[in-house]
């Protein structure tokens, strides 16, 4: 058993991006658009943290204010970008030709591959709460793709549910990587079994959990390696976890 790191919510990188001034073109929304971003790993100006974990390079806990705030159309290659909407509404536009609006529980997997652009916008009237996860691809310059799905918290209660990965009902990602979500009642214990030699990054969206013996509160996270069994105990009602399993 081995803990690579424990990252408390307040230790993450923090950026506050406004839609005026130097970022007026990059950040959509006017005149008072604000994006807040807590980064678990080094990202953009935040370079004093953890570089990544396995294939994960970005884990951003972001809030877009209403009024069209978000990121204007901008380019990507190669990265597989996933968004998990926690609240509000996210409108995603991409150069594959997709315009999609995602609400709480909805998520997408956008593989930029040989090249694509996207815009991420909150055109709703309340804040949009989104987790952005970027992972290295299994292959470079693959054809771009976009897939979306929905996590039904009520139907999946107290069950570790695979959202992305090689499981029935999950979105495929073409590599040994898996994203799961668990919404649990207080007091329940769950067992997560990473595939051989894989690591696990666990992030507390809501509530409180004890994971591999470490108590984690809201927006705390932990990474584990060399674990065949990871015990997860929900310590609060409606504890909500995002679990990313990656090769190391």
């Amino acid at each position: 058993m081995s803990v690579r790191f424990v990252l408390r919510a307040a230790e993450r990188g923090f950026s506050r991006l406004v839609s005026t001034g130097i970022n007026a073109t990059y950040v959509a929304g006017h005149p008072d658009g604000v994006i807040t971003r807590h980064s678990s790993f080094n990202f953009h100006e935040y370079q004093s943290g953890i570089p990544g974990f396995g294939n994960i390079r970005v884990f951003g806990d972001e809030v877009f204010s209403p009024g069209g705030t978000g990121y204007n159309m901008h380019p990507h290659h190669n990265f597989i970008i996933m968004a998990f909407v926690l609240g509000g509404a996210l409108t995603h536009v991409n150069t594959i030709g997709k315009v999609d609006t995602l609400k709480a529980g909805d998520y997408y997997v956008f593989s930029a591959g040989s090249g694509g652009k996207h815009a991420e916008l909150n055109i709703d009237r309340e804040d949009a709460h989104i987790i952005y996860l970027w992972v290295l691809p299994g292959l470079l310059l693959a054809p771009p793709s976009y897939l979306r799905n929905r996590f039904n918290a009520a139907a999946s209660a107290n069950r570790i549910t695979c959202l992305v990965g090689d499981e029935k009902g999950a979105l495929p990602i073409g590599q040994r990587l898996k994203v799961s979500r668990l919404v649990s009642d207080a007091g329940r214990t769950h067992l997560y079994r990473p595939a051989s030699a894989n690591g696990l990054y666990a992030f507390v969206l809501e509530g409180e959990a004890e994971i591999a013996g470490t108590v984690l509160r809201r927006r705390d996270s932990i990474s584990l390696e060399k674990e065949e069994r990871v015990d997860i105990v929900a310590l609060a009602a409606d504890t909500d976890l995002l679990l990313v399993e990656t090769k190391l």
Binding site: P75, S114, L136, L139, L140, L141, A142, P143
Partner: peptide, 23 residues
């Protein structure tokens, strides 16, 4: 050339090309 990230913000990778890639 696409996003202005400095050279120090690149990472060496050992990832093969997709069979459909035209690098």
């Amino acid at each position: 050339p696409d996003c202005g990230t400095p050279k120090s913000g690149f990472e060496m990778v050992e990832i093969p090309y997709s069979s459909e890639a035209r690098p």
